[in-house]
């Protein structure tokens, strides 16, 4: 590469949200890192910055990551104003420094929503999603030998829609980007993934009512159909799932699907 920055690396200015703990007052702190190679990821740049900080005896910046290849949903920050950064269909860990120029300034903020409390710096608690999942984001099966894979037929279209919804990695970017901090896209992905398949059928009404009741109880905002969630979703989950979720909910409420619970039925 003829670019001189390829050897010496880029210098990047950062404005990063630092917050000691949930209850503490947070603020932006400016940092400058140099020697950043284009092949590095944004998170690797933060690793380098953290090594610097630790060497200087300062506290490292806390942020979440695990797989670093866009499949686990652990990472998640608002990078220069957009959840998971400005590139569509990618996670924070997939951001590469070649998207930036020498001397650029990047702001990094945590996902902000009441039900996602900041634990430290850029790390937020997303247990609210787990509690919603526990209300019905599963299918109940009997133990025993595995059923014949071809015993229940699924149409290609339904399988495709279900698979698309199933790619949700639960990262929470949809909540972070929503002007109302609504969790509709996440919850709708979980509900419709199962509603499209026959296996999800027996519990679908109860699932929709219980998961949406939990979503509301967690304090997520209501949806205004801005569609900002779909634009930031690393898995490009479509808001057609939100429409599907609403159909499921209305049908369940209409037919009194939740009654089966008290009778101990399926």
């Amino acid at each position: 590469m003829s670019d001189s920055s390829a050897k010496s690396g880029m210098t990047i200015h950062l404005k990063i949200w630092r917050q000691a703990r949930s209850a503490a007052q947070g603020r932006f702190v400016d940092y400058t890192v140099s020697g950043i190679q284009q092949e590095m990821s944004l998170l690797e740049m933060l690793d380098i910055l953290n090594e610097d900080l630790v060497r200087k005896g300062e506290e490292a910046i806390e942020f979440d990551s695990d797989c670093r290849e866009g499949i686990c949903g652990t990472c998640g920050m608002v990078v220069s104003g957009v959840a998971h950064g400005k590139h569509a269909g990618t996670t924070t860990c997939e951001i590469r420094m070649r998207q930036y120029k020498d001397g650029d300034t990047i702001t990094i903020e945590p996902f902000r929503a009441g039900p996602f409390p900041i634990i430290k710096d850029l790390v937020v608690g997303r247990e609210a999603f787990d509690r919603i999942q526990r209300k019905g984001g599963f299918v109940s099966t009997n133990v025993g030998s595995a059923p014949d894979g071809n015993a229940i037929l699924v149409s290609k279209l339904a399988a495709d829609d279900a698979m698309d919804a199933a790619t949700c990695i639960g990262c929470g970017a949809c909540v972070a980007a929503c002007p109302n901090a609504s969790a509709s896209l996440f919850v709708s992905a979980k509900i419709s993934q199962l509603a499209w398949l026959p296996q999800g059928g027996p519990e679908r009404g109860r699932r929709a009512l219980a998961m949406i009741a939990q979503m509301d109880a967690e304090g997520f905002g209501d949806c205004s159909n801005h569609g900002e969630c779909e634009a930031v979703c690393p898995k490009q989950i479509s808001i057609q799932n939100i429409a599907k979720m609403r159909r499921e909910y209305v049908k369940a409420a209409w037919t009194g699907a939740d009654k089966s619970r008290s009778s101990g039925g399926d």
């Binding site: 569509a88 801005h226 569609g227 900002e228 779909e230 634009a231 930031v232 490009q236």
Partner: peptide, 8 residues
């Protein structure tokens, strides 16, 4: 704004 597929 995220732009792209957003309808905001």
């Amino acid at each position: 704004n995220a732009g792209g597929r957003s309808r905001k």
